[in-house]
Amino acid sequence: MPYDAWKDNEYIESLVKELKDNGTNVIVGSLDKLINWGRSNSIWPLTFATSCCGIEFVSLGAARYDMARFGWEVARSSPRQADFIMVAGTIVHRMAPVLRRLYDQLAEPKYVIACGACAVSGGPFKKSYHVVMGCDQIVPVDVYLPGCPPRPEAMIYSIMQLSRKIKVERFFGGVNRREKMQKEFLESHPIEGVNDVK
C-alpha cells in the first residue's frame, strides 16, 4: 500500500518530520527501513476483548471487512506472540491489573490501541464507581480510537495508523521516541509484582 495513501493524520505527520530532521546514515537507515517494513506489515493482535467492541473486532475478522487482507488475522491467544493489544471494551478496576499484566507479557515491540469510548475515557460509564476512566491510566496507548463501538472501518483505520507509526520508528541509533515514552510511562505507573518481574 503506498505510503502517501494514508497521509492524513497531522499528529503522525509532525512525528515523522521530527524523526526525519535528525538525519541518519545510509546503511543503518535502509536497514531500519527493511525492519520497519516487516514490522509495520505484520502486526498480530492479541485476542483480547471485554465487551461490545470485541464483537465488532470479530466482524472485522469476518468476510466482510476481512482484516486478513492486511495480514492482521493471525490473532494470537498468547500475549508472548502478539504485537499489539486492541483494548476492545471497558476496563474496570478488577480487570486493570490483568490488562497491565497482559501488556507486560507482550514481547517487544508492543503497541496498544485504545478501542472505543470506554477504553479511551470511560465513555458512557463515566459516572461508574468501578470503571477505569481510560486505559491510558494503566498502559501506554499508541492509538486512540473513539466510537461506541467503533465501526469496523474505523478499526481498520486505527490499525493502519498504528502501522504508519511503526513505519517511522528507529531500530538502530538515535533516540527511539516510542521506547522513551514507554519507559517514562512505566516508571510513573509502577505495579508491584508485575513490573519487578521484568
Partner: peptide, 15 residues
C-alpha cells in the same frame, strides 16, 4: 506477507 512476518518475528524480543 509471510516475508514481512518473518522479518518481524526475527527481531521480536525473546522473553
Amino acid at each position: 506477507q509471510s516475508v514481512a512476518d518473518m522479518f518481524k518475528i526475527l527481531i521480536k524480543e525473546l522473553i
